[in-house]
Amino acid sequence: MEPLIEVAGVAAPLPQANVDTDVIMPKQFLKGITRDGLARGLFYDLRFDSAGRPREDFILNQSAYHDPAILIVGPNFGCGSSREHAVWGLKQFGVRCLLGASFASIFQDNCFRNGVLPIALSVDQVGRLQGICSDPTRNRLRVDLLHQCISAHDGVTMSFDCDALRRDDLLNGRDAIASTLQFCADIRDFERVHWASKPWLMPVRS
């Protein structure tokens, strides 16, 4: 995975609460066997009406916001199904960072694993950034993961917290499986002790 150090670009406010992964990536886009082609499915029913025409009033269909690198989202974003397709779609659409008051837990893990940075801020901070970025002439943000700082228009800045381990993985573009396999001897040792004390846990080929 390529390292993520900074994200700069258009930030689109999407204040709706509890946007679930069914809304982010509807079921008809889940039948693939690769990660490809999911940009089209992103927010499909919000972006398009039943005849497939773009909904003019949806923010990502407005010219100032059609190419966002950042979304400023409502609370509990990404709730519901574990489908990672939601994050693949966001990334393929160009989104590399989400700012919001809270994220659903599986969704948040999926973001980190795909080089999309989910940042939890206070409700007030989210509201403030949504306010600024609602103005198409002030809708660009810079998110600096290295210094954990967000810069908005007019010199507005705010710092943010980030899980240290996940931050490190993003900054270094680390392959999580390769990192874990450094501990393969520990995993084998663990298995030996685990199954010796609880033999019924040992999987057997049937």
Binding site: E84, T180, L181, I187
Partner: peptide, 19 residues
């Protein structure tokens, strides 16, 4: 529940990096 990246991680290592 886990995402697909972690499905791959479990297949490859029988573990997850768990919070």
């Amino acid at each position: 529940g886990i995402g697909t990246s972690d499905v791959e991680h479990v297949l490859a290592t029988q573990t997850v990096v768990y919070t």
